[in-house]
Structures are given as structure tokens and as C-alpha cells.
Amino acid sequence: MKLLGYLLLSVLLLSCQNQESKKEATLSSEPKGPKNVILLIGDGMGLSQMSSAQFYKEGTPNLERFPVVGLIKTSSSAQLITDSAAGATAFACGAKSYNGAIGVASDSTAIENLPEMLVKQNMSSGVVATSTITHATPASFYAHVVSRNMHEDIALDLVESELNYFAGGGLKYFNQRSDEQDLLSELKNKGFVIDTTAIPSATTEKMGIFAASNALPKFIEGRGDFLTQASLKGIECLSQNENGYFLMIEGSQIDWGGHDNDADYLIGEMLDFDNTLGAVLDYAQKDGETLVIVTADHETGGFTLAANEGNYNSIAPSFSTGGHSATMIPVLAFGPGAENFTGIYENTDIFHKIAAALK
């Protein structure tokens, strides 16, 4: 009987050990989440805008390097067709709101954004744009105002925000204000190194770059590679935080080319954005801990790559509107956690998927 008891006890112990081993193996085989997230937003960039890179870029577009593709629905809380403010608020805060809302809900109350959440995990955050830094998309990642047109109020929110890095235009909202406040001095008092002439070679933990008094020039009018270089400088600065970071990069003026129904303007901005994607992807491939997501807030212009007078070997870009359209928007993803961005879902899910990836 004693021998039988020992045998039964041995079997039970072995069974428990096997179950623990299987549990540990399962846990170790679970995909590791990202340390960093870079979200690239091509403002106004629909599928036709993306497709233009196939036909107007020399070589293969960087867009084609992404292994994961999804689609988002973009309507705002009050309108079928969103604007950039409500679209970016959905990305930054995870909630639908009305057109014009910056970081506020439909009842105009402030909603916590990603940088405000991530600072609680001691992570860093930054934004880059070719518009003013107070424009709707970048503003939604740090400000809380009832209207996107409140640029001076948005600038005040940037001073009090949780950002560690920003680069774009809009200097006049900080040093030529109606209230005569000198927000550049206030930013410096908050620990920011501010540059109003160029992207500095030095790297600091808190940096602000103002490349223009208002918006930056068009790419086809000599802006150069500001978007790429400002994005890489942002990665360099934010990477100093061993806890990880979040960086939003906006190709702002793809949208403006669509509003102007100017195909050359739009395509130039799209190619500049694709160049920036390439630089970011090169970094992410080497780093191995960075999730890269590419999407847009909405499509602008009803842009179409139409056949040129029936000639199927010639493209004549055309537009159907000077405003936005309601079409679904592609989502591309690369890196740890990219597999979670497949399917068709609401634009607010971009926020929730990023938050889940960063736990």
C-alpha cells in the first residue's frame, strides 16, 4: 500500500511539473509587445493618395514594405464626414467627438490623451508636423480646447503638456501673441531647448523646433527633407528614455493639396511622406522594439487616379470635391504588435490598440 501511495504521489508531482512547464512555455512563446510606438498620419491621405506613390516615385514606395493592412471608418460623433480635429482626437484620446474638437468629448469636457497616459509609465512623447504645431492633428495629442481655431489657447496647452519633443511651424503663436506673453521663455523654463532656425545637431531630453512663423513651405517649393530629419531627431531625443516613447508624425500638407485640387502639390507631399516612412522603417527594423503605424484622419479632395481621356497607359489625376470625403482609410503596421491592426474598425480603435500594445 505504501508503495502504491508513493507511485500515485510521484505521478501527481510529475503531472503538476508538466503543467507548469507547459504554462511557462506558453507564456514565453507569447509575442513580446513594443517598447515604442510611432504613429504616422498622412492628413487627407486616402487609398488614391497612397497609390500615387506607385506611379510618381522612382523605385518602390516604402508603403509597400508594410506586412499588415487594415481599414478604419472615420465619421465623427456629429458628422458623417470628419475633419482633422475630430479624426485626430479619435486617435489621441480614443473617443468620437464633433468636428473642430481638440482633445475634448462631445460635451466639451477634456479627455485624457496618449502622452498624458504614458507619462504615468515614465514614457516620453513627441509630435512632428509640416503645418503649425498648433494645427488640428498635432494639437489633439497635447491640447484640450473646444475649437481647433483657438491657436493661442492651444499654444498655452503645449507649454503645460506632457510632450518632450515637438517640431513644426507656428512660431507666431508663441512669440507674437495678442496677450503679449512670451511662451518661448516659458518653454525654456520647463526645460525645453528651443531652436527657431534649424534642426540642431545636439540631442537633449526636451526639445522644441519652430521651422516657420506659420506653416512650412510646400515640398515642391523647397521645404527639403524637414519632415524626415525632424522625425529622426525626435526618435533620437525620445530614445534616451529607457522606458520607451510615443511619437506622432504628420504629413500635414497632403490634405492641403487635396483642398486646393492641386495634384502636383498633393503628390509632392505624398512622396515626402513616403520618404519619411522609409527612414522610420529603417530605424524600426534595426531597433526591433518599435511598432510603426501609418494611417490618415480622412481623405481629402475625392482624389482619383483616372485614365487620361480613355488612354489606359496615361494617368490624369482628378478631384471630385474641395473638401473631405467619407471613404474608409487604410491602416498599415510593422513591428511587434502589428498583427492587431488588421480588419475593419472605427478610428477610435487606433488609440485602444496602441494603448493595449503598450499595456
Score class of each variant (00 low, 15 high):
residue 142 Y to H: 10
residue 90 A to C: 05
residue 10 S to V: 08
residue 234 G to A: 02
residue 43 D to K: 03
residue 230 A to P: 02
residue 333 A to F: 01
residue 41 I to M: 09
residue 299 E to A: 02
residue 327 T to L: 10
residue 289 E to T: 14
residue 250 E to L: 01
residue 52 S to Y: 09
residue 243 N to Q: 12
residue 184 L to V: 15
residue 39 L to T: 04
residue 42 G to F: 09
residue 114 L to E: 07
residue 331 V to W: 10
residue 316 A to G: 01
residue 55 F to A: 08
residue 236 E to N: 05
residue 100 G to P: 12
residue 207 M to L: 12
residue 286 K to P: 01
residue 16 C to G: 12
residue 346 E to S: 11
residue 120 K to E: 10
residue 195 D to G: 10
residue 292 V to M: 00
residue 161 S to G: 08
residue 92 A to M: 03
residue 359 K to N: 15
residue 34 P to S: 11
residue 168 G to W: 05
residue 123 M to R: 12
residue 359 K to C: 08
residue 345 Y to N: 01
residue 111 I to G: 00
residue 298 H to N: 04
residue 308 N to Y: 07
residue 24 E to C: 03
residue 48 S to K: 14
residue 252 S to V: 02
residue 59 G to D: 04
residue 279 A to R: 06
residue 93 C to S: 04
residue 15 S to R: 13
residue 159 V to M: 04
residue 181 Q to C: 02
residue 7 L to E: 03
residue 135 H to S: 11
residue 237 C to A: 08
residue 307 A to W: 12
residue 8 L to G: 02
residue 340 N to H: 13
residue 2 K to S: 13
residue 225 D to Y: 00
residue 289 E to W: 10
residue 102 I to A: 01
residue 273 F to C: 05
residue 257 G to H: 14
residue 236 E to Q: 06
residue 20 E to F: 09
residue 297 D to K: 02
residue 175 N to K: 13
residue 316 A to R: 05
residue 220 I to A: 02
residue 219 F to P: 09
residue 63 L to C: 02
residue 285 Q to Y: 09
residue 258 G to F: 00
residue 192 F to D: 15
residue 47 L to A: 14
residue 63 L to W: 05
residue 267 I to W: 09
residue 257 G to V: 11
residue 334 F to R: 01
residue 344 I to D: 01
residue 214 N to G: 02
residue 185 S to D: 07
residue 352 H to Y: 11
residue 218 K to L: 15
residue 216 L to V: 02
residue 319 F to N: 03
residue 355 A to M: 13
residue 276 T to Q: 04
residue 346 E to F: 03
residue 88 A to T: 08
residue 338 A to S: 11
residue 306 A to W: 06
residue 293 I to C: 05
residue 112 E to G: 02
residue 64 E to S: 11
residue 206 K to Y: 11
residue 193 V to F: 15
residue 21 S to C: 06
residue 161 S to C: 08
residue 354 I to T: 03
residue 238 L to N: 07
residue 351 F to N: 15
residue 131 S to Q: 02
residue 68 V to I: 14
residue 222 G to L: 04
residue 217 P to M: 03
residue 146 V to N: 15
residue 251 G to H: 08
residue 107 D to T: 10
residue 140 S to W: 00
residue 336 P to E: 11
residue 34 P to W: 12
residue 20 E to H: 07
residue 206 K to H: 10
residue 80 L to V: 11
residue 212 A to T: 00
residue 26 T to I: 13
residue 102 I to W: 00
residue 30 E to K: 14
residue 274 D to M: 06
residue 48 S to E: 13
residue 79 Q to F: 12
residue 58 E to K: 07
residue 178 S to Y: 10
residue 316 A to V: 01
residue 105 A to C: 06
